[in-house]
Design a protein around this nucleic acid. Structure first.
Length: 351
DNA sequence: AAGCCGGGGTT
DNA sequence: AACCCAGGCTT
């Protein structure tokens, strides 16, 4: 077994994280759910979501049987909603195709929606003890430094080298602990900024440290600036004080979530209808804009509060539009910034 | 190979 | 403000 793995495992016993909710019990369903939630999302953020999710959907059959809306509602605020849609599809596929038991090969797992090579590796290693590597953000950083691997890890050539290194360093046993250990090392010692090399168990073999160039690895991605976009957000209320929501298209930004009608960019199918409604409304007032940063563009939401004197005809497909009282908003899957904006807009004594 | 998908934390 | 985070999917 590699010296890297030996030192890492010894360090893990003393300094690793042993009390994460998905470690007890460390079974495939819980590992899978945690892995999906943890994609691009920090541990501290995930824990309360994971706990609520397990309470509501204790096993894969419960998840597969649930309507997508329930899953999205529990996911609301976690972001990357394609993960929730894939999670739901994946649960149904595992029940239909495998009777609810996770497959135990890399190829079969990677066929499933939302599971790539790293997540598949994590499930095999952590739930089944198989000798399969992972390569998430933590491991990328640890290995890029340990092997002094040059280049930005987003490129296929660098990815390939890192996967090879990850494979070469695997232990002969304790795969579940090892997988947790290398992530813990990245999260608590080999951090992106100010790595604590003096506390690092694998410092003796670290190539970047030997070059006194730990900060040079991994090489950062080239930066680009984000375009600015904007949209009208129509907070339409009927005479009963209920708010109009629409279901967004299943794919794309905020896919499948409930949201007040948008005009301009990110528009909805009912855009023309909403524009007419806006043009004929008598009680309209502007609310302060909200800026929201997406990965690849900045969005400014410009809310308009519209109070209707009579109920309008709804024009969408049945089930795609909804009048809700403000008190029931929390039960629906809304984008977090939109939810906050609504709560803010109507908490300040505005009728 | 590059773009698409959020939100919170850190510095 | 910029960067980072338990990535995967699509083109």
């Amino acid at each position: 077994m590699s010296a890297f793995a030996q030192r890492l495992l010894a360090w893990f016993d003393q300094h690793g994280r042993h009390d994460l909710p998905w470690q007890h019990p460390r079974e495939a369903y819980r590992v899978w759910l945690a892995e999906i939630m943890l994609q691009q999302t920090q541990v501290a953020t995930v824990i309360p979501y994971f706990t609520r999710f397990i309470a509501r959907f204790p096993d894969i059959h419960a998840l597969a049987a649930a309507p997508l809306d329930d899953v999205l509602a529990l996911w609301s605020g976690l972001g990357y909603y394609a993960r929730a849609r894939n999670l739901h599809r994946c649960a149904r596929q595992i029940v239909a195709q495998y009777g609810g038991t996770f497959p135990r090969t890399l190829e079969a797992l990677m066929e499933l929606p939302g599971i790539g090579r790293s997540t598949a590796g994590a499930i095999l290693a952590q739930a089944f003890g198989q000798r399969t590597p992972i390569l998430d953000g933590n491991v990328r950083r640890v290995l890029a430094r340990y092997g002094a691997v040059p280049g930005w890890p987003g490129t296929p050539a660098v990815q390939k080298r890192l996967w090879q290194l990850a494979e070469a360093l695997l232990p002969d046993e304790r795969m579940a602990d090892y997988t947790q250990a290398i992530m813990d090392l990245g999260a608590t010692v080999c951090t992106a900024r100010k790595p604590a090399c003096v506390r690092c168990p694998v410092a003796p073999g670290c190539a970047a440290l030997a070059q006194n160039a730990v900060a040079e690895y991994p090489h950062p991605r080239s930066k680009k600036k984000r375009p600015q976009r904007h949209a009208r957000l129509l907070l339409i209320r009927n005479p009963q004080g209920q708010l109009l929501l629409e279901r967004r298209a299943p794919l794309g930004i905020w896919g499948g979530l409930w949201c007040p009608p948008l005009l301009g960019e990110l528009h909805l199918a009912s855009g023309t209808w909403a524009q007419i409604l806006l043009d004929t409304a008598s009680r309209v007032r502007q609310l302060p804009p909200l800026r929201h940063a997406f990965t690849h563009f900045d969005l400014e939401l410009r809310p308009l509060q519209i109070e209707l004197d009579a109920m309008p005809e709804l024009i969408c497909e049945p089930g795609q539009q909804l009048w809700v009282s403000l008190s029931t908003l929390s039960h629906l899957g809304l984008p977090a910034p939109v939810r906050r904006l609504i709560e803010q807009s109507f908490s300040l004594g505005s009728t």
